[in-house]
């Protein structure tokens, strides 16, 4: 975690408790900073002239991530098919394979894995792009031209993420279910009719909306953190220039993935 302290104080922590205290206040400060960053950027989406930049970002974040997401979805479904089949068959319940796969994907694996894949792809590039623009003074240049850098750089990315994540999750789910079909039915001999029947009957509206709610939450988390890390890369204490951009990108991706899993837990508790 970076310590965002622009005044450059040097704090020598000898006492372990003081150290813990500092860390906690640092985290709280950073959380506040991220929250402010998010609110400032998000509401600018309602200003004019945003459409074309949002569309561009949907291309980079959404459309370009689709092949990867679908590939991962396919293999996840296929693996689930094999693993679950072998386990369920022991209870004589191979017939519920469809339910098991569909529910695991739609409720959990779809939103989470999609979010993680997009973080790896588009999230890291958000951090790096904005980070490099920061260290080469391009963001300062925008300031001097009276162009709002948050509106120009960050808002389209957050908006595009909120649009893309659920759509990509839907792709992941469907292709995953097809993957399960490929292994469970085609490979391992389960009856196709049973499989799809189970899929249709066991999935409820609540599962689907829950999954999409998670996607949107993940979208906001990932895009905000990645843009934030890039935007403030110049305030890092542990590196300068290119190195700080690299460190910011690492932080952004790791932090995003961790928060995806934590918020997954929180949202799941809320929904159930």
């Amino acid at each position: 975690m970076t310590t965002m302290r622009p005044s450059g104080e040097n704090i020598n922590q000898v006492w372990p408790f003081a150290h813990v205290g500092t860390k906690v206040t640092d985290w709280v400060n950073e959380f506040g900073a991220v929250a402010i960053f998010l609110f400032k950027s998000f509401f600018k989406v309602f200003r004019a002239k945003q459409m074309s930049s949002i569309v561009q970002q949907v291309y980079y974040v959404g459309a370009r991530s689709a092949p990867v997401v679908m590939l991962v979805g396919l293999f996840t479904g296929m693996v689930l098919g094999i693993q679950l089949y072998h386990t369920l068959v022991k209870f004589g319940s191979a017939g519920v394979l469809g339910s098991a796969i569909a529910l695991s994907l739609i409720r959990e694996l779809g939103p989470v894995l999609t979010a993680i894949m997009i973080t790896a792809r588009a999230g890291s590039s958000m951090t790096t792009e904005i980070g490099i623009q920061r260290i080469s003074e391009q963001i300062d240049a925008l300031y001097t031209m009276r162009i709002d850098s948050l509106q120009y750089l960050v808002t389209p990315r957050i908006a595009a993420s909120i649009i893309s994540f659920p759509l990509l999750t839907a792709f992941f789910d469907i292709i995953g279910i097809i993957g399960g079909y490929l292994t469970g039915v085609v490979l391992l001999g389960l009856d196709a009719g049973t499989y799809f029947y189970r899929v249709r009957t066991s999935v409820e509206m609540a599962d689907i909306t829950g999954g999409f709610v998670k996607s949107v939450v993940f979208a906001i988390i990932v895009s905000t953190i990645c843009c934030f890390q890039g935007y403030f890369t110049h305030m890092r204490k542990d590196g300068h220039g290119a190195k700080s951009v690299g460190l910011s990108t690492t932080s952004a991706v790791v932090l995003s993935c961790v928060l995806i899993l934590i918020s997954d837990f929180v949202v799941t508790c809320f929904l159930l």
Binding site: V55, V58, Y59, G62, A63, A66, A102, I106, I163, S164, P166, L167, L168, A170, F171, D173, I174, V199, R200, V203, E204, M205, D207, I208, F212
Partner: peptide, 23 residues
């Protein structure tokens, strides 16, 4: 590309909602 992506996505979401969610 974005247009195609969004349209496809919405189609899939609709399908899931209607078929699987029994709406």
């Amino acid at each position: 590309v974005v247009g195609v992506f969004v349209v496809l996505g919405l189609v899939v979401v609709m399908y899931m909602t209607v078929k699987l969610g029994n709406v």
